[in-house]
């Protein structure tokens, strides 16, 4: 077992999964309670456009994807407020548009985009220390942001119109949260992948939501649940030699099924007695 840690890439992967668990635990709770799950799916898929452009222009993929997905996130927030269109249609358009840009860019890019699969599904072998540094910086930003503005985030997420009548505008905070969501998605790409990241933002939160009464605790529990799943997932993916992302997601789904099952059982027992 200890041999695992003798590999540099495994050490990076473990540190990476701790960072990703904290990142996704925090921002995912906001996403779930404000019902922005599809928006995060849209941003993560659209970030593929950024990766395609990076291959085409021979730029650093994560940098390019970050810029691209931040623009997409801000655009979605703006569209849902200012264009009178159905939010889910806007989400669907952006989602497909980003993927389409990515595919075309990759076709046009010279040579073979060899680690494309690792962006789509995550690959623990690819986590470099600069990736970790990037994730750690976003994490610090996110923690500071949530500590400073927790109340405004909570009340705004619950009833933003009412907060407006208290003279507290949540507009800027909403935009910043979307930017932080986009950066979180990019920070998690290497470990989880574009296609699966939405699960990291929702399943731990849904597990937590079985017990919690407060947003704060949803965040704490989600982090713990993600940590357990991602560390276990890493170990399994190492021994089975399969991508880390799908294993972590399947573990999370297993956790959710068990927790929900136990919860329903508890209700049944309560009813009988």
């Amino acid at each position: 077992m200890l041999e695992l840690f003798s590999y540099q890439f495994m050490q990076n992967a473990f540190i990476g999964s701790i960072l990703v668990s904290i990142l996704c635990g925090i921002i995912g709770s906001y996403i779930v309670v404000t019902r922005k799950v599809l928006i995060s799916g849209s941003i993560s898929h659209a970030s593929f456009g950024g990766i395609g452009i990076a291959f085409l222009l021979n730029m650093p993929p994560l940098l390019c994807a970050s810029i691209f997905s931040v623009i997409v996130a801000v655009l979605i927030q703006w569209m849902s407020k200012h264009l009178k269109m159905r939010e889910d249609s806007a989400i669907g358009m952006i989602w497909a548009c980003g993927m389409a840009i990515g595919v075309i860019a990759i076709y046009l890019a010279p040579g073979y985009a060899k680690d494309l699969g690792s962006y789509l599904f995550g690959n623990i072998l690819t986590l470099s220390s600069s990736d970790l540094f990037f994730s750690a910086s976003i994490m610090i930003l996110l923690i500071i942001f949530f500590t400073l503005f927790y109340k405004t985030i909570l009340y705004g997420a619950f009833d933003s119109e009412y907060m407006k009548t208290r003279g507290v505008s949540t507009k800027i905070i909403d935009y910043l949260l979307m930017v932080l969501l986009a950066l979180t998605i990019i920070a998690s790409l290497r470990l989880i992948g574009i296609i699966l990241i939405v699960a990291m933002l929702t399943i731990p939160q849904e597990c937590a939501s079985i017990f919690v009464k407060k947003l704060k605790f949803m965040i704490y529990y989600s982090i713990v649940i993600s940590l357990i799943a991602s560390i276990l997932g890493l170990i399994i993916s190492f021994y089975l030699n399969v991508p880390s992302g799908p294993i972590i997601i399947l573990l999370l789904i297993l956790f959710y099924s068990i927790l929900k099952g136990l919860f329903l059982l508890k209700i049944q027992i309560k009813k009988r007695t």
Binding site: L154, F158, M163, R166, V168
Partner: peptide, 19 residues
């Protein structure tokens, strides 16, 4: 109001003294 939102009665009432 979203009835699935994780927020307590106490927290909701306290939002009335924001600002």
């Amino acid at each position: 109001i979203d009835k699935r939102f994780p927020i307590t009665v106490e927290e909701i009432i306290l939002s009335g003294i924001e600002g």
